[in-house]
Write a protein that binds this DNA or RNA. Structure first.
Length: 898
RNA sequence: GGGCGAAUAGCUCAGUUGGUUCAGAGCGCCUGCCUUACACGCAGGAAGUCGGGGGUUCGAAUCCCUCUUCGCCCACCA
């Protein structure tokens, strides 16, 4: 048996964490444990980008998942935490494009097949990095079920879904203005084009009439788009418009003539009342263009440079971009056009303006609205079943304040642009016959047309990454096949993720779950907070304010990292960490782990060689302290369990902390020390109670700090080979052990000890000095308690002795809340004036408190209106305070104070 | 322009259905201690008009209104 003295005085996480994790893996502790009566509990990981590296957001999010999984695992659920990665279309393609750019190449130099192979090579090499990093923070995922959204089986699911939606006519080709990233060269969904307020300018531009000297003035933030204008509109009720409606104006620079039309979509309050209409480069202008049958010329190319690029020309194919502007970048073009306008005297004025502009969520470029053909999913039919279920309360979002946001989005859902002009991703399975133009979606790759046998072409585009991740809860389990995993682990239970992907991912998973599985994919959505620095800025690589979770693991241990993340923020609240002071940020967790380690260093030599069941201990040998700590242990079990069930991980953590440190270590261990050496029945009882309490602490804390608890639990007596805390049962609540009277009695002992310590500190008594003290109990019951706990009081208050005869002593006084009096003999050291002041201050405080309470109880309004139990409680309180107060007053009188 | 959240000790945050030993914790600070589990510790202590103002109530950090500051989400006002 390893002697506990072998434990170093300080816990070193580095020496144990790796080994413990390997042990868990080798023993298959992460796999679901099947058995009679075991109900599944399933969490699917939000799959991180396959090129990603672990950041604090992952740390927070995955620690929460791990806590929940470990909690439910120990409660006997058949837990599955399913891990994996996302191929992350745009993000990954960008990473590899940057790589080959260093070789001076673009993806077009390589060609599609070679480029895709290059990405695969990169993914094969680095794709498991982030999953390996998750292991370092203790994530107990079932790695045997790791999935990747481009796995062949997963790809099959994506394709099946696409074809089904096609067959249901929920996928359609849309010809409209979409968000286009000129840097990534792809279309984006509405969600992927993030609105950000930026400082821009509003340009007022004159458009001269064709038939006279007059002009009208339009206002725009994007003057370069005037090249693509095909109308000017004004509200029909706007008096400023009347002279112009039906006339034609000349576009500056090109002189192209366009009509002035009335359209009631115009906001009369904004700008000049006249709106230039660029149907191919603005979503709302496109709507106007549709209504009015306008031409829609594209005047910008895909890469954001000016140039005629087709569009709907209505037969007018004449160039709209003057030769000298062709090829200019859009922002250069803007400057140039502004100059030209100035030169022609057509620029009326320029105003500064802060306005929302869409940015690419991957590269942050300003998104260009652009008319194009894309594939869309019709979302309303998919949203309805989710909304029904949600309104029935069958899906819970915590914290619930997100409900409104979620509902608002779902109720106003818009169709989803799913095609991306990328190479990395799931190729869109739409085929077109070049001969008969038949177009269809297919589960298999085809080379000939099923209708006419002609040659076919597959759509060149790939699907939005989220079109694969929305299937994650069932595609990972083998769908569309009817697999045992799918039957067993769908639907899952808790989904833990960041609020920023509520729409991208969570809402769509719900829709896919209903549509393809007929059931919601999970019951609770837990939305985490955001990890920020002390200036409340989001941690990010670009700001350089991040903390590398692996640095923290290296410096302080995974448990310390988890501790800070879990204890540091409540449900859904942001977690603020200080990148400039890791020590202060993570020391509490490290210190706590070390405390546990040292409790073990003390305990282990004193525990029975075999596990002694508490039930075998003669209850008569249990002391007050024994019964107290057992009662507190059960309280901790009950409260921690409840807190975890309500996702209040921070509360559970704090309660366990208080029990382990504030109750078990600070009080029980201290009271029990002398008994342990005796080797008698009392010692046996003490060690059994210690073992029970300690075992309980380790089980309760394991989900939060799995490494230190597993390490220490392994050292407990009675462990058989193969026993692991990770799979050991959660403490079963034994509420019969909760004993309010015991807690009150021991509470009085604690109060007496604290009062004496307090006096010692106040009178600066050296710790080496042993004083005599006396306690005059408030009644026979209290007297019994103090007498039986005499030794404890003497030791913990560092006294020479304590008697029941307070009258015999001169010294410093204190009155406990039950009215018992404590006297500490301090003959020479006592300054009567100071003592009087000290006690009368206390009396004043009590009197004030009592006055308030008495007034309240005398208030007819209160006694008649407040609930009876509240009134009764207040009366009891008054009684107790009065006892305490009277005792104190008596003491003051006895001392002859003022 | 809408909607939401936050504002409590120097710092980071708890405080669940409104009830005076709930004004708390950790870190930091002050005092004294290396008391053979732990100085990553022990004992004791100072510190907050619970953002401002108004209201409801017998009673409010807790409910309502309003203002201020910060943050987030949504939105086709060019």
């Amino acid at each position: 048996m390893p002697g506990p003295t072998e434990l170093a005085p300080q816990y070193n996480p580095q020496t144990v964490e790796g080994g413990l994790y390997r042990t868990w893996m080798e023993r298959g502790a992460f796999a679901p444990t099947t058995g009679p009566g075991r109900e599944p509990y399933v969490i699917v990981i939000p799959p991180p980008n396959v090129t990603g590296v672990l950041h604090m957001g992952h740390g927070l999010n995955n620690t929460i998942q791990d806590v929940l999984i470990r909690f439910e695992r120990s409660r006997g659920r058949e837990t599955l935490w399913l891990p994996g990665t996302d191929h992350a279309g745009i993000a990954t393609q960008n990473v590899v494009e940057r790589l080959i750019a260093k070789e001076g190449k673009t993806r077009f130099d390589l060609g599609r097949p070679a480029f895709v192979e290059r990405v695969w090579a990169f993914v094969r090499e680095t794709g498991s990095t982030i999953l390996e990093q998750l292991k370092q923070i203790g994530a107990s995922c079932d790695w045997s079920r790791t999935r990747f959204t481009l796995d062949p089986a997963y790809t099959r699911a994506v394709r099946e879904v696409f074809v089904r939606l096609w067959e249901e006519r929920l996928i359609y080709r849309g010809h409209r203005v979409i968000h286009w990233c000129p840097r990534c060269l792809t279309a984006l969904s509405d969600e992927e084009a993030e609105s950000k307020d930026i400082e821009g300018k509003l340009y007022y531009i004159h458009y001269p009439l064709t038939d006279g000297p007059d002009h009208l003035t339009v206002a725009t933030t994007r003057p370069e788009t005037l090249l693509g204008d095909t109308a000017v509109v004004v509200h029909p009720d706007d008096p400023r418009g009347a002279p112009f409606i039906g006339k034609r104006v000349k576009l500056p620079i090109t002189g192209i003539e366009i009509p002035v039309l009335a359209d009631d979509s115009v906001d009369k309050e904004f700008g000049t009342g006249f709106v230039k209409v660029t149907p191919a480069h603005d979503a709302s202008d496109f709507e106007i263009g549709l209504r009015r049958g306008l031409a829609m010329p594209l005047i910008m190319r895909e890469n954001g440079t000016l140039g005629d690029d087709g569009g709907d020309r209505k037969g007018d194919a004449a160039p709209r971009v003057p030769a000298e502007l062709v090829g200019l970048d859009r922002f250069e073009a803007r400057k140039k056009i502004v100059k030209l306008l100035e030169a022609q005297g057509l620029l009326a004025k320029v105003e500064s303006r802060i306005h929302a502009v869409r940015h690419c969520y991957r590269c942050d470029s300003i998104v260009e609205p652009r008319l194009s053909d894309q594939w869309f999913v019709k979302m309303k039919p998919l949203a309805e079943p989710v909304l029904d279920c949600y309104r029935r309360g069958e899906i819970t979002i915590v914290p619930e304040r997100w409900n409104a946001t979620f509902l608002n989005w779902m109720e106003n859902i818009r169709d989803w642009n799913i095609s991306r002009q990328l190479w990395w991703g799931h190729r869109i399975p739409i085929f077109t016959c070049t001969k008969c133009k038949h177009e269809w979606a297919d589960r298999e790759d085809r080379t000939t047309c099923p209708k006419c046998g002609g040659p076919v072409e597959q759509d060149a585009d790939v699907l939005d990454t989220w079109f694969s991740s929305w299937l994650w809860p069932f595609a990972t389990l083998g769908w569309p096949d009817d697999t045992p995993d799918l039957r067993r682990y769908y639907p899952g239970h808790t989904l833990v993720t960041a609020p920023e992907i509520l729409f991208f991912w969570v809402a769509r998973m719900l829709m896919a779950g209903f549509h393809f599985m007929g059931k919601k994919p999970f019951t609770t959505v837990y939305l985490t907070g955001t990890v920020r620095d002390t200036q409340h800025r989001r941690m990010s690589k670009s700001l350089g304010n991040g903390i590398d979770p692996l640095d923290v693991v290296r410096l302080y241990g995974a448990d310390a990292l988890r501790w800070t993340l879990i204890a540091g923020g409540s449900l859904g609240a942001d977690v603020i960490l200080d990148p400039d002071d890791l020590e202060t940020t993570f020391a509490p967790g490290r210190n706590f782990a070390n405390k546990l380690w040292n409790i073990a260093r003390f305990l282990l030599p004193h525990l029975p060689a075999e596990a002694v069941r508490l039930e075998t201990i003669d209850p008569g040998t249990l002391t007050l302290a024994d019964r107290w700590i057992l009662s507190r242990a059960e309280g901790a079990v009950a409260e921690a369990t409840k807190a975890l069930e309500q996702f209040r991980l921070d509360e559970a953590t704090k309660r366990c902390f208080e029990f382990a440190w504030g109750e078990l270590a600070d009080w029980y261990v201290e009271t029990v020390k002398p008994r342990l050496a005796a080797g008698d029945a009392s010692a046996r009882a003490a060690s059994a109670v210690l073992l029970h309490s300690w075992d309980t602490v380790l089980r309760l804390l394991h989900p939060i700090v799995p490494f230190i608890t597993e390490e220490l639990w392994q050292k407990l007596p009675g462990r058989r080979p193969g026993d692991l805390l990770i799979t050991a049962p959660w403490p079963s609540p034994e509420t019969r052990r909760i004993d309010a009277r015991v807690e009150a009695e021991f509470g009085a002992v604690q109060q007496a000890i604290t009062a004496i310590r307090n006096i010692r500190a106040e009178y600066r008594v050296s710790p080496k000095t042993r004083l005599a003290a006396a306690i005059r109990a408030s009644g026979p019951a209290a007297r019994g308690v103090f007498e039986s706990e005499r030794e404890t009081i003497v030791r913990l208050a560092q006294l020479e002795s304590v008697t029941s005869d307070g009258a015999a002593l001169q010294g410093a006084h204190a009155v406990l809340s039950d009215g018992s009096e404590v006297v500490v003999a301090l003959t020479g050291a006592i300054d009567l004036g100071q003592e009087c002041r000290r006690l009368s201050d206390e009396l004043t405080r009590l009197d004030k408190q009592l006055d308030g309470l008495a007034a309240k109880l005398a208030n007819e309004q209160f006694t008649s209106r407040a609930p009876a139990d509240v009134v009764a409680k207040e009366r009891q309180k008054e009684q107790a305070w009065r006892t305490q107060r009277d005792a104190l007053a008596g003491k003051l009188a006895a001392l002859g104070c003022g």
